[in-house]
Nucleic acid binder design. Structure first.
Lengths: 107, 107
DNA sequence: CGGGATCCTTGGAGATACTG
DNA sequence: CAGTATCTCCAAGGATCCCG
């Protein structure tokens, strides 16, 4: 996922941004959190990915300050994920992707 | 790279778009071709990736009609890659990524 | 419910060598 | 130059079990 850059244009802001979100699951997580917070289970079902993989992405997004994790000390436990300010600045990427998807992909 | 969708929101246009370009190298290829065609070797050096990997991405982008491949029968051979109309519709994604990268990433 | 720990499998990517 | 062909390897990801 968060790969390291090696090319001669690794310095480019596009490359640095792509190194963070150039990943299918991460884009889908940001999409899911676009309109409010979601629980771990909701994301799990929406992405159709195992907990292990989802956790890895969420931890990474937390570290990058793109996603915020809030734990509610209830029984059973509840954990809500939401976009930070930085994360919300990724929404134009999602929107551009949506435009493209609507225009060029079918089914 | 071009993963298959399994989640409950796999139908979303964002998901379908992300399935195509939710990959670091693909985003960098589109970025590199944004301002005109480039040769195989130029892309290779820019991305810092092996020929094998680059070829896989280019073939996939060709199949998806995002990139066009033109062979010039010269010696030594020359092959130019460029964005198709569909590929150019990905530029807003790259631009959004650039905005994000400029604002939130450093170095 | 929201994970952590473990085992296991696969294919994606590097390195190298070769060719039209 | 622009690939293809092999081999190898490691790490990402699924499956499973467990726990607070």
């Amino acid at each position: 996922m968060s790969s390291s850059l090696h090319g001669s244009n690794a310095l480019c802001p596009v490359a640095r941004g792509a190194a963070l979100v150039g990943d299918l699951y991460i884009l889908l997580i940001v999409r899911d959190l676009a309109d409010g917070s979601k629980r771990f289970g909701e994301l799990e079902e929406s992405l159709g990915v195992t907990a292990r993989t989802l956790t890895a992405r969420l931890r990474m997004l937390e570290t990058e300050q793109i996603v915020e994790r809030v734990v509610y000390p209830e029984i059973p436990p509840r954990v809500e994920y939401s976009l930070t300010i930085k994360g919300r600045d990724l929404l134009p990427v999602i929107e551009a992707l949506r435009q493209f998807g609507e225009k060029w992909t079918h089914e």
